[in-house]
Every structure is written in C-alpha cells, then in structure tokens.
Design a protein around this nucleic acid. Structure first.
Length: 977
RNA sequence: GCCGAAGUGGCGGAAUUGGUAGACGCGCACGACUCAAAAUCGUGUAUCGUAAGGUGUGUGGGUUCGAUUCCCACCUUCGGUACCA
C-alpha cells in the first residue's frame, strides 16, 4: 500500500476537529505547561514558508509535553490591529475589519494544513470589542495608578491623593490644578513632548518603530514635533525590568538588547554655580572622579537656561546656531561628524578647582538625556577632547594611565593626578570619594540615569483601540461636550461603559491637521472623545493572559485560571521584538502583578528566538541605456547586435524594447571591463530587476513561460551566449561560439521573503507536493532553530524519502506487514537509543538532529527487516510530535483506540543501552592509528598490555615501552611515544 | 565605535562535559532492476598521494597526552545599537 499523504492528512484533520483532540481545560490533577507563539499580524499576503518555522517547533514541544502527561495550553490568535489594513483601507475604501477578517481566514486555512495542535477554542482577536474592552480596561488601570517609590510598586492613585491631602495646600487647589498635579504621577499620562512625527504616515511613531532615522514601515522621513500625547511611565519600572532579566531563561543576546535599551548608568549629578547669578547648571556625569579636569560646560540647544546664559554679545550667534540645530533632521544629525558649538558668553565655577569655566552650546549634548548638560573633561572623553581641540580649550590630564598600556582615554583605570584630595587614588576609589565629597558639600548627589524614555502611547491612526477618555473643559459641566483643546482635563470612562466601540469614519485618512482619522467622525468629536488610538503594542502586551480565559466577560482573566496556568513556560518568536513587545509585555505584567491582578511578575520564563527563513531572490539584468543605436558598447555587442536583431524582426528602432542579459554574459563583461583602457560610465551598463522565482530553477530562467505569463515582457530580448529569446521564441546567433549555452542565467541573492521581491515560497505549494509531515520535518532539518537560513528545497526529497521508508516498515506492495514477533535485543537497542535521543533533543530544541535520529532508526530497522509491533508502536509515538498525520494513520492501523496524540511517550529502558564492550580509537601522539575492541571493565594495565600487542601500534613504538599511556574509560586510548 | 552571535567537505549541517572531525541529508559517481525512463535499492564520496603516509574545523600563537571545543591576538560575515555624558 502506498503512502498517500493527501488522503491521510485530509481525513485526520477532520477527525481531530470533530473530536476536539487539542482542546484543553484546567485540570488540577495534571501539571500544567504553557507553550506560546508570538501571535501573527494577519497580512493580506498570507503565510510564507518562513512563518511556520517557530510554530512547527512550538507544536512539537507542546505535543511532546502532552505525551509526557502535561496539561498543555497551546493557543493561537491574531494581532489584528495594524497599519497595513488601514493603508489598504485608505487606498480602496474597504473597511479594515473586512480585510483583516479575510486575512485571518486565509492564515487559518494555511495553518490547519500544517497540522498544528492549537486549541482554537481559545482564539483571540485583538480587534474584537470583547478583547479590546480589556485593553481599554487595563489602560484605565494605568491611568488610575501611580508608582510608589517607597513601596517600590504601582498603587492606586487614591493612595497618592491621601498622601498629597496631608499637605494643606492640596485642598486649596482647583480641580484642574489637582488633575494637572496628578498627571505627573499617573502611569498612563498626558504630556507635551517632542515626538517622532512622520508626515507621510500622518502619525507619531515610537522610538523602536524608527530605523536609521526613518520609519521602519515605508522608510519615510521623521521630524521632531511637540504634541500632546499619551505616555506610559515605563521608566518607573526600568530597574525592575533590568533586574528581572537575571531570573529569565533567555539568550544573552536578548537580555543584552534589553539592557542596552534600558541603558542604566550610574554616576552623579553636580551643580555648577554661575557666578553673580541665581542660576546653576546641573550636569550628569558617570565620571565624577575626573571633575578636576572639567574645563568647560556644554549644554544642549534645548536647555532651559539657554536664554539666561546667553550674553548680549553672543546672542546673534547663539540664535543662529540653535536654528541650525533645529533645522537638521535626526538623520542629518547622525551623519554629521563635524564638531560644532557656540560659546554662550557665560561662565560657571568648577566647584573643585574653583576655576571659571566657559559654558558652550553644542549639538552633541542631547536635551532628552540626563540633565541636558555635561561637564566636559577633554582629557578623558573623546568628544570633549575633539571639542576642546577645535575651540582651543584647556586640557588637564587627571589620570595617569602609564601602568595600563593600551587603555583608551575613556577606560576607567589608572591613578588620579592633578586632582587635589583624590590624587594617587585608583579611579574606582576616586569615583566614590568624589561623590561622597559632592554630597557632603550639598552640591549634588549620586544618581542613576536611563536611556529608556517613557513610552509614547498615542497614534494618529484609525485601526486601533479607542482611548476610553472624554475631555472636560475646565469650568464646564461633566461630559459629553466638545473637547480636544489644550487646557481640558481627560475624564476616564466608567468601567461599565466599556468597551468603547471603534466608530465608523467617513475617511480613514488623518484629518490633515495632525489629528487622527477619528476626528473625521462628528459625533465622536462632539462627545469629546479622544481621537487618537492606542499603539500596536497595547493589545500584544497582555494577550498571553487572555488565552487563559478567553471568553470571560467580567474580568480580563479569572484569578483561579491564572493561578492554574501561571506564566508562559516557553515562548517562541522572532528576535526583532527584543526591545518592543517583550519589554512592554514585561512592564504590563509587572504592573498588573503590583495591583494583585496577576499572580506572577514575569510573563515569559523561557524564550526561544527562531531564525528567519529568508528567500532567494532572482535577478535579471536589464540593459541600462535602452538605446539600441549605440554600438559603442562593444562588450555586449560581442553577443548581442542590437541593430541586427531589430532589422531581422522588423522592430521599430524608436520603440522601447528592453534587452535583458543572461548573467554569464554580464560576468564576461565585467572581466572585459577590467581590461578596458577606460572606465565604463557608471559601472557596467545594466541594472538588476527582481524576477518571480516561479520561473527560475537552479538559476536558469524559463524565458518562454515567464513571457507567456507576463505580457510586459513581450517585445523584450533575452540574450544568452548562444542566442536570444524574443516573445518566447529562441533564435541562435549565426556566429555563436561552439557549445555556447542557451540557458538564460539569473543572478541570485538571499533576502527577506517578501511579495515585492518575488521570492516568496508558499507553504501550501510545498505541502501539496510533499505533504504536511514532510514540510514540518524539512523545515526543522534545515538547521538549528535559532539560526537564520535561506529557503532551499533541494534537500526536501531526503525527508520525503524518509517518510516513505518509514511507511514501508508497516506496509509493502503486498500490504500490511507488521508482526507480533518478540524483538531481538539489537532491535530493542535501536528503539531505546532513539527514544532517548529524541527526548533529549526536544528538551534542548535540537530538532534538526532529531530528524536525523529518526532517519538512522528507520535505516537500521530496515536493514534488520524489523517489522515488529513491539518496536514500531513506541517508535511511532516518538515520531508523533514531528509528523502528526502519518503517525496517527499508522497508530490506528495498529488497532489502537483514540488518538496517538493522547498516548504516553515511551520510557527509555537503559538496560538495552548498556554496553559491555567499547571500540576504542587508539591514538599515537594524538593521531588515531588503530582500533581495538575491549571490555568496558578492563583495567588500564590490561588495556595497555593488549594495545601494545597490536601490530599497528608496534609499528609506531618499535616495541619500546611508551613514554606515557592514557586510558580514558569508554572514550579513547592515547599512546605517547 | 560599542554589544551580541557565528565562521567545519561541492551544499545544508553533526560532534551535548577537552577524547576516533565530517553523523544525517542533498548533490555527484558507479552499479542493480527496466526495452527505456522515472521510482526504488546497493556501493563510494574532506583533501593531496598509486601506496606508505601527509594535510585539514576563518588566520596566527598558546595551554594539554589530546583542542571544532579552553586562553590570547587578528580577519571576515550576520544581527542589535549609537554623539547616552
């Protein structure tokens, strides 16, 4: 009987769904295990072969845990709010809900084909009111909470009000004043702040949505703009987010990225007095030890004292400089390596040297970090040094590094010099001593600074959660009323009014004045609702909690269910979320934990970052000039005579007919180009274009079918070494070189899989051809799960062959051949060796070597002609997590009741694995020269005697006693001569 | 610049604690079956050498009886990040 994967997979898919095989409920009699995937954004393009890699891995892990008696929560859902659906809506007018729903259906179909064991009864969709009701609810909790630094946790805003009420001035304040004051504490708060405004997208972007100064999506330019925005006070959690990392089983790379993002640095803040004035400049420094070398102060262009410090004489120049700094975009500021700055005209007093030191403004000091002012120590800081050199400022050496050759000027090593009371101290001690002195004199304190900023939480978009906020204009009655202006007070919606449903709008475009698309709905605006929506990370910051209790209408998740499931045991997802989603989720979870709403502080115990499967893009090379008359391009003319082609085919020379060159011609030409006595204008006169990989096999383009499917290539010439294709027909050159190839060869490159690069491989196609089991195992067989690699289906036949071979252990042409004979020890050994290996591999996530272990077992059993039930059935269970369909089919053929996926993973019988002998490799001076089989319990003396008897060893020892004899039991023997 | 990961046959990769480098698969070659092809099965396949033997895990050095594995320096690639004081 043949292995008919199509029928098997279709049948079992239906049965699993009918019998709810993967449905899970809380069961206190079983240990729980929570296996989670980062839920996808359902894009219109569907899944490509890269997406399922992590899902396949997590599916195997979940199935394995289930077979080992765990009650496994393994859910899936949709991160359904997002920009692509909204932009499609702007282009076509289709409501994003419709697009999103269609995309989800498509994804679901593709996923079902692969045979995942998700409990779909727990599916969540973040764009559904049932879900975002709770996103809004949590936002209100954040709004109504503050961070109590004394108890070191978030508390209800009421405890803050109690505290503030103790001060008699509090009661005297107006409602508005009180609200403004509280805004300084709320964990979700509003503030005017410079934001990253993207004009092209009409929205504000978070720092991590920006790459190289441009929007991550679309690559549009970003400018700084002051706007009133919602923020989350994540900085209150910086320390806990940092400390919590130590307890997590995440890769070091991932932890480092979060640490760098949080960017904690310890130092001191110090006041520098401006002589004869009430002003002081507060600087932040991580190197208080070097304060004796501080010879000038630099403040940011945005610093609040700029006006006060600018003297009359310097005013014009300072204003010019500030407008110069502001005119530059972030990109330009980054590219600019020139040292710039202007003297304010004022001086400050170095509190230790008592010298008057000049105050400068320079763009290398940022307004947003630290205090926006630094004490510059040119002897120990690269940038300060460059600045001092350019402006002729004094450089005082304060650290003797002669004992540390090779140390950079910024390394914290050496002995203090020229530094008053700390002279002779080591840098480490000097830092402490200076801080102590600063604190003693009351001119500063020890301080910790973070790079991390509070997280922007407003988006000028339509397709997101509405804020459950109305605005109250000061002096007016309660909502509803018109809002949106600058002095109004946000009023949170009452919890029982949630969800606040996302309204319909007349246009999905931003209103044009910087306000969100919701401003296009008059009723919405009239009711005073906030017109911004929440960012993408809102919903994804807590979805893992909702899976535990997805249908609950009274709570985001019931306490007892969270108590049962606890946090995610293993989380699979891409490394690109290191500082976005993974940081925000930890923050939200910690917050909910502080309020006693969640029973665990960290949401994700173990993290696995699957690598990306990239696409192999194919390029065709197009003649750049498109001008057929220029015979001067002698290099190409060797193969293609444009004019000849034109006249042969009666083509109008004025008509545009692009010529594409096979890349082997281009390679020839680049060789040729090197030999030319002159340079070609801009490199070689061709440019690369992506071509759909469907028409390319092994870098050879199928020109006729490409042209047949794409009318735009009609009339184009595809030149190869032997001839050319025109409208899909091949014509040879009369003088073509002997044996020249007709193949049109493409160029290739590994890139991210994407529709626009025409390099997408659809899993459906692979599954149709080889089956889902094969697809799953092949993805894993490609290499280690954490490694990125290009998709290459060359090896897929190996996995396909394996499945067929495996099938043939049960069936041959004549039919069923499984016997009830008692297996031999050798057969048992193969079985138990495999059980052990697979169990260990899954725990370590070494799925690629598991696949090879199955191949080995199948080959070995095949060689022994073993078709015995007692071997095959346990083996089948070990394979079930990897290949759920074929194993289920064979399981039922073995006359088992119920699903194999609810069976028990077999136990390893060590007795079959213990060896009494070992074949030792015998090395002479570390090089393996011989082999010898010895009993495992042999003594070193006896082994030495036997080894030295070997002819192949005697040859090296010449019969002499060895210098040394190394015997490592069960491993190796080494003879030193 | 800084932080992190990696570099092994023609290719994807294996070697889990310092102990027989190249498992498994692809590709390739040869053979069997076939009128033939496909499919399937078998054999071989790091490299130089007829062989004995030599060489070999990015490069150079070191520790060790023994190094893909540990240490030092360097090169390359990929990810992250950046006037962060």
């Amino acid at each position: 009987m043949e292995y008919n994967f199509k029928k098997i997979e279709d049948d079992w898919k239906k049965i699993w769904e009918r019998d709810e095989v993967y449905k899970v409920t809380e069961d206190p009699t079983k240990p729980k295990y929570y296996v989670l995937d980062m839920f996808p954004y359902p894009s219109g393009a569907g899944l490509h072969v890269g997406h399922p890699l992590g899902y396949v891995a997590s599916d195997i892990y979940a199935r394995y845990k289930r077979l080992n008696g765990y009650n496994v929560l393994h859910p899936m859902g949709w991160d359904a709010f997002g920009l692509p659906a909204e932009q499609y809506a702007i282009e076509t007018g289709t409501h994003p809900a419709i697009t999103t729903d269609a995309a989800i259906k498509r994804y679901r179909q593709q996923m079902d084909k692969i045979g995942f064991s998700f409990d779909w009864s727990r599916e969540v969709r973040t764009c559904e009111p049932d879900y975002y009701k709770w996103t809004q609810w949590i936002f209100l909790k954040l709004y109504n909470s503050w961070y109590n630094r004394e108890t070191n946790k978030a508390e209800s805003i009421d405890t803050l009000i109690d505290k503030l009420s103790a001060d008699s001035t509090w009661e005297a304040k107006t409602v508005a004043e009180k609200q403004h004051e509280l805004m300084n504490y709320r964990l979700a708060f509003q503030s005017y702040s410079e934001v990253n405004w993207c004009a092209a997208l009409g929205t504000v972007l978070a720092n991590d949505e920006i790459k190289d100064g441009k929007s991550e999506r679309g690559g549009h330019p970003i400018e700084r703009r002051k706007m009133r925005q919602w923020f989350l006070r994540i900085t209150e959690y910086s320390d806990r987010l940092l400390d919590g990392l130590d307890k997590l089983d995440w890769s070091d790379a991932m932890k480092e990225m979060q640490r760098n993002w949080i960017g904690r640095s310890e130092g001191a803040s110090v006041q520098f007095q401006i002589p004869n004035s009430k002003f002081q400049i507060e600087v932040f420094t991580t190197r208080p030890d070097t304060i004796f070398g501080a010879t000038f102060i630099v403040i940011a262009a945005e610093h609040e004292l700029v006006d006060e410090l600018t003297t009359v004489e310097q005013k014009v120049e300072i204003e010019k400089y500030i407008s110069y700094v502001k005119s530059k975009t972030d990109v330009e500021r980054q590219q600019e390596k020139k040292v710039t700055g202007v003297f304010t005209g004022s001086y400050a007093v170095n509190p230790f040297t008592k010298e008057n030191i000049p105050v400068y403004i320079a763009e290398y000091v940022l307004g947003g970090y630290g205090t926006g002012a630094i004490m510059a120590v040119p002897a120990d800081d690269e940038r300060d040094k460059k600045f001092a050199e350019k402006f002729g400022l004094p450089i005082i050496e304060v650290i003797d590094k002669s004992m540390h050759p090779g140390a950079t000027i910024e390394d914290k090593v050496g002995k203090m010099i020229n530094s008053g009371f700390v002279d002779g101290m080591e840098v480490k001690d000097a830092i402490k001593a200076v801080i102590a002195e600063i604190e003693k004199r009351g001119i500063g304190t020890k301080k910790v600074n973070y790079k991390q900023r509070d997280a922007g939480y407003s988006r000028q978009r339509y397709w997101g959660e509405p804020f459950p906020i109305q605005y109250k204009i000061v002096g007016q009655p309660d909502p509803p009323f018109a809002g949106g202006e600058t002095d109004d007070i946000p009023v949170p919606l009452h919890g029982d009014k949630l969800p606040l449903i996302l309204p319909e709008v007349s246009s999905y475009k931003p209103s044009g004045d910087g306000r969100a698309p919701l401003a296009n709905n008059k009723d919405w605006v009239a009711a005073g609702y906030e017109t911004d929506t929440m960012p993408g990370y809102a919903a994804s910051s807590w979805y893992f909690l909702r899976y535990m209790d997805p249908k609950n209408n009274n709570e985001f998740a019931a306490k007892d269910k969270m108590e049962y499931w606890q946090n995610v045991d293993i989380y699979f997802g891409g490394a690109e979320h290191a500082v976005g989603h993974l940081l925000y989720s930890r923050f939200w979870n910690m917050f909910l934990y502080d309020l006693g709403l969640v029973p665990f502080e960290e949401p994700f115990k173990k993290l696995v970052n699957q690598g990306m499967i990239q696409g192999v893009s194919q390029f065709i090379l197009k003649d750049k000039s498109n001008d057929p008359s220029k015979e001067t391009r002698t290099n190409f003319a060797r193969y293609v005579n444009h004019n000849k082609i034109l006249s042969l085919h009666n083509i109008d020379p004025n008509k545009i007919y692009p010529v594409y060159y096979s890349s082997d011609i281009a390679v020839d030409c680049s060789d040729l180009a090197k030999k030319l006595p002159y340079n070609l204008p801009d490199g070689l006169p061709y440019s690369s274009y992506h071509v759909d990989i469907r028409y390319v096999k092994d870098n050879i383009l199928d020109v006729p079918s490409l042209v047949a499917a794409n009318p735009k290539y009609m009339g184009s010439v595809f030149a190869t070494k032997a001839g050319y294709y025109l409208d899909g027909e091949f014509y040879s050159y009369k003088d073509a070189p002997q044996n020249a190839s007709r193949d049109f060869i493409t160029d290739s490159a590994v890139e991210k899989m994407s529709k626009s690069k025409y390099n997408v491989v659809n899993p459906d196609d692979v599954i149709d051809k080889y089956g889902a089991d094969c697809f799953r195992m092949f993805e894993l067989f490609l290499g280690p799960i954490e490694q990125s690699k290009p998709w290459d289906d060359k090896g897929i036949s190996g996995v396909s062959n394996f499945l067929k071979k495996f099938w043939r252990l049960f069936y041959d042409e004549k039919g069923w051949k499984v016997s009830d004979e008692t297996p031999t020890d050798a057969e048992f050994k193969i079985l138990h060796k495999t059980i052990k290996k697979i169990g260990e591999d899954i725990e370590r996530l070494n799925f690629n070597t598991s696949v090879s272990a199955f191949m080995i077992a199948t080959n070995e059993l095949g060689a022994l002609k073993c078709n015995k039930h007692a071997i095959l059935e346990p083996l089948l269970i070990t394979l079930a997590p990897f290949a759920p369909f074929i194993t289920e089919e064979l399981w039922s053929a073995l006359d088992n009741k119920g699903s194999i996926h609810q069976a028990m993973f077999p136990k390893v019988e060590e007795s079959y694995l213990t060896e009494s002998e070992h074949t030792y490799g015998v090395s002479i001076n570390g090089k393996v020269r011989a082999e010898i089989k010895l009993p495992l319990d042999i003594t070193a003396q006896e082994a030495e005697k036997q080894v030295l008897e070997l002819e192949s060893v005697k040859k090296w020892t010449n019969g002499n006693a060895p210098k040394k004899f190394i015997f490592v039991k069960g491993k190796i023997i080494n003879v030193v001569v």
